[in-house]
């Protein structure tokens, strides 16, 4: 099964190249990737600029990074980001995985409705979801109570509402990823386990879970990334005075452009690259074909 697609796609590649593949297409491709990467590269370069300007080069410095590290507010919001991401990812991964198993493995009344409920948080724009949650936390009386917690030596006060908001949009993403993995999984493997005297729990523990693990890890990684990156929902569900890193960056941008923002941005970019790297390595470990790398979702 795995031999034909690559043969076929190899043929496709050669064909497209030979028929229409010309110098102009290659030039175009290079320009396309330049368009994608140049702004990021420039952003990173000016985080080392020895001037307040982000457009005129005045020599190299790492002073902006020193300022960033010394900025207690920034560091605190970084810890806030990590805490929210870890907690919401853990909850969303469990809930999303269970939901995915129900949706993929059973047919039952109300499945269509449940499908809609699971897909809606992905489809609707985050601003709409953000104001929905804002109104809800106000009306329900849940409010924006903080969870006072000691986290790696930092006293954090993280509103429950933010964590809830992050779980709410992450459940769906985890469910989609795990479902895709489940759909590709051979069901007879579970039947084989049952046939070999494994009960429901043993079948899940010894066969389903190990086979599903790459999907669950992928879903968790996606949830973690989305949670770290989220600005809009955090912004509207945090009440007053709570900042994750993106919320703080947004506030800084509003007050004016400085290379310090570039420095924070570079830090966040590095974090994203690290997560992408982890994702690639874990996928290669799990022995999936290279094509799998392409799918963020």
């Amino acid at each position: 099964m795995s031999t034909t697609p690559s043969d076929r796609t190899l043929g496709m590649g050669a064909r497209l190249r030979s028929r229409l593949g010309s110098l102009s297409l290659s030039v175009y491709g290079v320009l396309g990737f330049l368009f994608l990467y140049l702004p990021i590269v420039i952003l990173v370069i000016f985080s080392f600029n020895d001037s307040r300007s982000t457009s005129q080069w005045a020599g190299f410095t790492t002073d902006w990074y020193r300022q960033m590290i010394e900025d207690r507010q920034i560091i605190l919001s970084l810890w806030n980001s990590l805490f929210v991401a870890i907690i919401s990812t853990a909850i969303a991964t469990v809930l999303g995985t269970l939901a995915a198993m129900a949706m993929e493995r059973y047919s039952f009344r109300g499945k269509m409705a449940m499908d809609a409920v699971l897909y809606l948080p992905i489809i609707i724009p985050d601003i709409a979801m953000a104001i929905m949650l804002l109104i809800f936390f106000n009306v329900s009386g849940i409010g924006f109570q903080p969870w006072e917690v000691q986290f790696f030596g930092n006293r954090l006060a993280v509103p429950y509402s933010v964590i809830i908001g992050h779980v709410a949009f992450n459940i769906s993403f985890v469910a989609v990823v795990v479902r895709a993995r489940l759909a590709n999984m051979d069901r007879t493997l579970e039947e084989a386990a049952q046939d070999l005297y494994a009960n429901t729990w043993q079948t899940f523990r010894r066969v389903t879970l190990p086979m599903l693990m790459p999907g669950i890890l992928g879903g968790a990684l996606l949830a973690f990334t989305l949670s770290l990156d989220d600005f809009v929902i955090t912004f509207f569900t945090s009440g007053a005075g709570f900042n994750t890193l993106p919320v703080r960056v947004f506030g800084m941008i509003r007050r004016g452009v400085t290379p310090k923002i570039n420095a924070v941005s570079t830090l966040m970019l590095a974090g994203s690259f690290l997560l992408i790297l982890i994702s690639i390595i874990s996928r290669m470990r799990s022995g999936e074909d290279e094509d799998a790398i392409q799918f963020g979702l």
Binding site: D186, T188, L189, E191, A192, Q194, D195, L196, Y197, A198, N199, T203
Partner: peptide, 14 residues
């Protein structure tokens, strides 16, 4: 299936 005294050889081996 796990309580039945039979075993199966599956089509694609599983």
């Amino acid at each position: 299936p796990n309580k039945r005294p039979v075993n199966t050889v599956f089509q694609q081996y599983a």
